[in-house]
Design a binder for these strands. Structure first.
Lengths: 204, 204
DNA sequence: AAAAAGATACCGACCAGTCAGTTTTATGTC
DNA sequence: GACATAAAACTGACTGGTCGGTATCTTTTT
């Protein structure tokens, strides 16, 4: 891998800036209300720059989705790779999930992505691609069978639990804005931990 | 209470039609993308009619929120009122909550409401009013102390659990569109039941 | 006859997307 | 190295469609 040219660096820099700015604006205003001018300004660029790097507002949003989903999965995989025993894996998974309560952006962003996908069936295919990529990589990591060798109902419950974690976090995160005392950082951690332990009993 | 005049009936009819149409369009398109023309058309009225009954698009949305929140709480209270024992109350609450998985509109609508409130702090006051009304009525119903006489940590965990239920349902409902096999109606019921039982143990 | 509900045509602000022109980087050639 | 030329990144002004809101007129109810 050779050192990137000045132009490649420039491109990377601008794209990263635009994606970061887009993330902020999409989360705080929502996809529809988000303005490309605002995103560009926050990135220290002009709207024209957006269009040299992305095909459209929708494309920018989808690339952001793909990029962030990959990063999220990478983080999860990384924290699982090091584990050697099943108990260790479970603890790492639990810590990763419960620790997400500190990130106020990601849970809302995923909500926005899913609402968008729901309402733009023409992009569903592209979303599915990322979902399945993520699923595949999680599957790989799960070769070690973190939760088990499971069969029948147990296996289904486990899969159910895995797909449920993210949405539950998103829902709670959003609610925390309206119940700041109860769903404080501490409260969130507490209830997330309870839910995790209920969905993933430490012994089967 | 005297029989309503023809005009009052007309008004009620139109408002109900507009609110029903608004609910559908807001859910399927999202607040920002929803068009008043579309809402009016779906209600068999014109945009002008919207403005004889509501101050603005925002007002329509907020009235819808207030109306639906009241209806939701009414439903919950009604199913609790009949109970005489604590076990009965718990079962009724559980059935009510787990049964919500059949309603695909309400969970998404609440998401939309909360995202709106998050992004329009100028309306936060009006939202809070409805939230507190709902909370108050739930408190009344809870005079029978459905979940027990609780103290300390237990009491906090119980309150946490109560506010968590709704958002969890919303998150899962949204996710079910992307995991239709796992989060089928049956799958949803199953995981909702598990979560409920974990958050509200039948014995303390 | 007057007041309320509703329809329709219209306006103006807003904003995604475009385009012509400028700056920056890459690729030569001597 | 200096200089020319092309290509890519970027800017800023502009445009055209969209849609919340309004004003005027018609219909229904009192």
């Amino acid at each position: 891998m050779q050192t990137p040219s000045k132009q490649q660096l420039r491109t990377q820099e601008t794209q990263a800036r635009l994606l970061d700015a887009a993330e902020q604006v999409f989360v705080s205003d929502g996809y529809e209300a988000a303005q490309l001018d605002a995103i560009a300004a926050k990135a220290g660029r002009s709207k024209g720059a957006v269009y040299t790097h992305f095909k459209s507002k929708e494309d920018l949003f989808l690339v952001l989705f793909e990029q962030r989903t990959r990063a999220y999965i990478d983080g999860l995989i990384a924290s699982l790779k090091e584990c050697t025993s099943r108990t260790e894996s479970r603890a790492a998974f639990r810590a990763f999930y419960v620790g997400l309560e500190k990130d106020t952006t990601w849970p809302i962003l995923t909500l926005e992505f899913k609402l968008f996908a729901l309402r733009h069936p023409e992009w569903k295919q592209r979303f599915r691609k990322s979902f399945e990529l993520a699923k595949g990589r999680r599957g790989e990591a799960d070769e070690s069978e973190i939760f088990g060798p499971l069969r029948g109902e147990q296996k289904i419950d486990n899969e159910l639990a895995i797909v449920a974690l993210g949405p539950i976090l998103s829902g709670l995160m959003l609610e925390s804005h309206f119940e700041p005392e109860l769903l404080s950082e501490r409260g969130l951690r507490r209830i997330l931990a309870r839910i995790f332990d209920a969905l993933f009993p430490s012994t089967y």
